[in-house]
């Protein structure tokens, strides 16, 4: 054949596929986790005791001590994998922003948002995990004390908004990229994603208020 074909095989070749799997699976895990997290923290609605009970349950069963670091590792892995797709050089960043502006196209802006929230989360979610996991046991009182500091409260508002957006758009993106959300179902899926985003952000903000109002 007279065409310079690129059909050489080498072992590392399958890596791209594996990494794509990992990115999706870690993302999926984290998204599921933050919703579960919301439910656990949600026990605070029923008062400090309920919250403390579930927290101590996680600690007694060592879920927090072991699961926490594992989750932290998954989080870092997801961040690293995501970073492979992110624009790092200023030239690339400018390009993608210029592109999004040119296209005035919702899904392109979503992705820019995804990149921005992802970068922010990499820092602030890490801080959150560190402060919580390095100071066991988790109690409602500690949480309340923390958020009653204005700066921390703002920190959590930012965390909630970023996590909600990133996780929900991430789920949508997985659906689109892997072909589970097709042209036919896209509009409907997007509606569900908005609702999900609303539930998360709304729910978490209510919890934040609950912590604020918690008597320490």
């Amino acid at each position: 054949m007279s065409v310079d074909a690129t059909v050489e095989t080498y072992k590392g070749h399958r890596l791209a596929g594996w990494l794509d799997w990992l990115q999706m699976l870690t993302g999926l895990t984290l998204a599921v986790f933050i919703f579960a997290h919301m439910l656990f923290v949600g026990t605070v609605i029923f008062g400090a005791n309920a919250f403390n009970w579930i927290a101590s349950f996680f600690e007694k069963t060592y879920l927090a001590q072991i699961g926490g670091p594992i989750l932290f590792f998954i989080f870092l892995l997801h961040g690293t994998l995501g970073a492979r797709k992110m624009p790092f050089r200023t030239k690339e960043q400018k390009l993608i922003v210029r592109h999004a502006k040119m296209m005035h196209h919702r899904d392109t802006w979503f992705w820019v948002g995804q990149a921005v929230t992802g970068s922010i989360l990499l820092v602030i979610a890490a801080i959150h995990m560190w402060t919580v996991l390095s100071d066991l046991p988790i109690t409602a009182a500690k949480g309340a004390q923390e958020v009653q500091n204005t700066l921390w409260a703002l920190f959590y508002v930012l965390l909630i908004l970023c996590a909600g957006f990133h996780a929900c758009i991430g789920l949508y993106r997985i659906g689109v990229k892997w072909g589970f959300i097709t042209r036919a179902t896209r509009a409907k899926a997007l509606k569900c994603i908005y609702i999900l985003m609303g539930i998360y952000a709304g729910g978490e903000l209510i919890l934040l208020l609950r912590f604020l109002s918690l008597k320490v």
Binding site: D20, D107, F110, R173, K177
Partner: peptide, 9 residues
């Protein structure tokens, strides 16, 4: 195919 980020443009 793994480079596609699903931007839908």
């Amino acid at each position: 195919v793994f480079g596609c980020m699903g931007l839908l443009g």
